[in-house]
Structure formats: C-alpha cells, structure tokens
Simulated assay, not measured.
Amino acid sequence: MVERKTEVAKSADEASLREDEERKTFAEESDSLWLITLGPLIWILHFLVCYGLTAMVCAKLGGNADWLQILRIVIAVVTVIALVGIGVTGWRAWKQWDFLDDFDYSHGLAFEEDRHEFLGHAAFMLGIVAFIGVVYVALPALFMKTCL
C-alpha cells in the first residue's frame, strides 16, 4: 500500500514536471513567433510613415522646399530607428538560431530544440529582407527634389 502511494506521488511529480516543461516550451515558441513577425512589422510601419508623411507634405503643404528638407530629415530619423529595431530583432534571432554553436543546419527529426532553432533562422532571414526593404523605402528621399 505504501509503495502504491509512492508510485502515485512520483507519477504526479512527473506530470507536474512535464506540464512545467510544456509551458516553458510554449512560451519560448510563442516568443519565437513574435520574433518572426517583428522585422516585417517594423518594415510595414516604416513604409506607412514614410509614404504617408510624403503624401501629406506634397498634397497638403504644396511641396515647399523647406518642408521637403524637414521631410528628408524625418525620414532619415525614422529609417535609423527602424534599422536599429530590425538589427536588434535580427541579433535576437541569430542567437536563437544558434548556428555557430554546433554548425548543425540539417535536422532529421523534429525535436523541440530543432523547431526553436528553425524559428530563429526564419526570423533572421525575414529580418534581412526587412532591413533591405527599409533601405529601399528610404532611398527616394535622397533623390527627391520636388513632389512632381
């Protein structure tokens, strides 16, 4: 009878440990999913701010040269903020990818660690695309002389 209670207590402890491990894994993967979306989200917000401000300056303020100069400065500041945000996101994704630790880029079976590293890899690659996208969105501001 005592052995039976001990076995029940052990199985309850193991179930509790499994639940804690599942919660931890879910939290890590949930963070990874947010990390994947953050780079493209920054890119989208940058695009909306840059083109929205440009449309407002050109349509509502007549494209005055002084306003265009202020617009260029604002776009430069917004671009630097966006690139720093994408850089931080990319750095976190690179660390999660953990490629340099084991140089293991191919996984035969789907283990939790492999899924976690894959999400980091995907977030890192999306960060690179978002970085390039932000640069290309900001390029017209360098060459803009008038609104025409």
Rank of each mutant, 00 (worst) to 15 (best):
V2H: 07
V2F: 06
E3L: 13
T6A: 15
E7V: 08
V8W: 10
K10G: 05
K10F: 08
A12K: 14
E14A: 14
E19D: 15
E22D: 11
E22G: 00
E22Y: 06
R23G: 07
R23S: 04
T25N: 07
F26A: 05
A27N: 12
E28Q: 05
E29N: 02
E29G: 07
E29Q: 05
L33C: 01
L35G: 09
T37Q: 01
L38C: 06
L41R: 04
I44K: 00
L45N: 14
F47W: 13
Y51H: 00
G52T: 06
L53H: 02
T54I: 01
T54Y: 04
V57G: 04
V57Q: 06
A59R: 07
L61C: 08
G62I: 13
G63R: 01
N64M: 07
A65Q: 09
D66A: 14
L68I: 13
Q69L: 12
L71H: 02
V74P: 04
V74I: 14
V74C: 12
V74D: 11
I75R: 08
A76I: 04
V78E: 10
I81N: 11
I81T: 15
I81G: 12
L83S: 02
L83N: 01
V84C: 13
V88Y: 09
G90L: 08
W91N: 13
W94N: 11
K95F: 02
K95S: 07
F99V: 08
F99A: 08
D102I: 09
D102H: 05
F103V: 04
F103H: 12
D104R: 15
S106A: 14
H107Y: 15
A110D: 13
E113T: 09
D114S: 15
R115G: 01
H116S: 03
E117D: 10
F118V: 15
L119T: 05
G120Y: 06
A122Q: 07
A123L: 01
L126V: 07
G127D: 05
I128A: 00
A130Q: 01
F131M: 14
I132L: 15
G133A: 08
V134W: 08
V135D: 10
Y136V: 09
V137H: 07
P140Y: 03
P140V: 04
A141T: 00
L142T: 07
M144A: 10
M144I: 08
K145T: 05
C147M: 08
C147V: 06
L148P: 02
